[in-house]
């Protein structure tokens, strides 16, 4: 199997690569359109800020490459948010695979922002194995995708939000499977064994 990890100006590419190493999976970290298009599966990671990363993707003409992919694609954290239509983070127009708008958490006395730490997956259906209902995964983010028709798992923090989504060949998770111990590894394996 031929995996490409999209290389761009966002953090945690290396962490995702290490997670695949631990699973014994080979991959290519690349920003070359042909290498991304040719892969059996594509991982679109990301930690960072929406507008600067979108600008980078457009400058490198990776925006069109990503939205037109036909093989399974996994967006992680910022990667998931960039797959949406718009982000409130610096009022950014994103890739638009999911017709959803990314919003900011409102901190309260009970809820700190960023949402940082291990939180549980609920209402799990679709591609994230229902066996993983109530399992804890690691989050660190200030923006979230509201629950929508593409949501396949939710997590609650001030409101229920999308922990995982799927539309056609596009898979997405808000949490970090590469940092979520055994549960995260299971989720990566599910994606890696998926077909469209």
């Amino acid at each position: 199997m031929n995996i490409s990890i999209v290389k761009y100006n966002a953090g945690n590419t290396q962490s995702v690569a290490f997670a695949l190493d631990r699973l014994g999976i080979r991959y290519l970290i690349t920003d070359v359109p042909e290498e991304i298009q040719r892969a059996d599966k594509v991982i679109f990671p990301g930690v960072g800020e929406a507008s600067s990363t979108m600008k980078y993707l457009r400058d490198k003409k990776l925006d069109n490459v990503i939205v037109n992919l036909k093989q399974p694609v996994l967006g992680i954290c910022l990667g998931m948010q960039l797959l949406c239509r718009h982000s409130d983070e610096n009022n950014t127009t994103c890739l638009g695979v999911f017709d959803e708008s990314v919003q900011k958490f409102t901190p309260t006395s009970q809820y700190k922002v960023p949402h940082t730490g291990w939180n549980s997956l609920t209402s799990v259906n679709g591609w994230v194995d229902p066996f993983l209902q109530n399992q804890l995964v690691y989050f660190v983010h200030s923006y979230y995708v509201p629950v929508n028709r593409f949501t396949t798992a939710t997590t609650e923090y001030t409101v229920p939000f999308s922990a995982a989504m799927k539309k056609n060949n596009f898979y997405a998770v808000q949490f970090h499977p590469e940092k979520s111990a055994g549960t995260g590894e299971k989720i990566l394996k599910i994606f890696l064994s998926s077909s469209v």
């Binding site: 290490f18 997670a19 190493d21 631990r22 690691y138 940092k179 979520s180 111990a181």
Partner: peptide, 8 residues
């Protein structure tokens, strides 16, 4: 460490 450890 990052290569070995699967937590933050």
């Amino acid at each position: 460490i990052a290569a070995r450890i699967n937590i933050p």
